[in-house]
Amino acid sequence: MSSPPRRAAWRKGLAPYLLSSPAGLWLLLLFIVPLLIMLSITLKTCSPASGQCVMTWNWGELPHVVNLYRTQFVTSLIFAAVATIIDLVISFPIAYWIAFYGGRRKNFFLIMLLVPFFVSFIIRTLVWEFILSNNGVVLTFLKGNHLLPSGFHVLGTGFAVVAGLAYNYLPFTALPLYVALERIDRRVLNAAYDLYANRRVAFMRVILPLTVPGIFAAFLLTFIPAFGDYVNQEILGGTANTMIGTVIQNLFLIDSDYAGGASLSAVLLVISLLGIWLYAKLLGSRTIEEYL
């Protein structure tokens, strides 16, 4: 026989779990379970004919595909890193300007920044393919005026892929940076000026350190999806700059090599998790959600 107060206490302790159970169930069914299925497929052997997979505990698949496709991993790392750095360099001044000089029209400027991204991801990339093609507006004009040699092309190059990545993921960099800059207490800045800091010193020693968590969050939010992206490479790139996302997509959708695709996905996941772990280690796990 439990006394009424103890029963109430027990209920009270259960309440948070009950309240979070819809979200927990969601996470379990649509994230944890698929993740475990994906990991289990890495150990299976699948028939390209029937598509059926049998558990064979094949631990060799993972090192095999990583070894086979290591060039594409390196390409992806470089492309994603370069695109992220370009995004940081481009969007920092924009975010800075909106946060400090946007005034009452901050929201308007933010919306202007986001408007192009209301169009679907694929359509935006396809339009770039159209603009940059050999017979497209830009190259025809430049070649017609002998500003470029006639053999020059953009599509199919690594440059086109990096440019596509940088363009498509720009808001993922700009918004966290804006949030970080916006939150800086103006009085801290005034204090710096009171203490005879000039604008450069105030920026380097006050603003920049205070935005570091935002920069790191922006880096992760841009780098991780860009690393696994295949749309930009597929549409704007060529055979010489295949990224790991393209390989995974081909393995799943064309070659029916589910074990290989799942193994490469698992490696991608581990690399992404490493980034997040590093963030939590250096800046604390509480701050990241403020930028999402």
């Binding site: 028939s47 390209p48 004919a49 086979l68 496709y69 290591r70 060039t71 594409q72 055979t239 010489a240 700059n241 295949t242 390989v247 081909n250 070659d255």
Partner: peptide, 19 residues
Amino acid sequence: SQDEIDAWNNLFLPIIQGA
């Protein structure tokens, strides 16, 4: 057999995929 198809793919796919 499927083994033959796999052997073929293992030889020629890496050429195309740029590894």
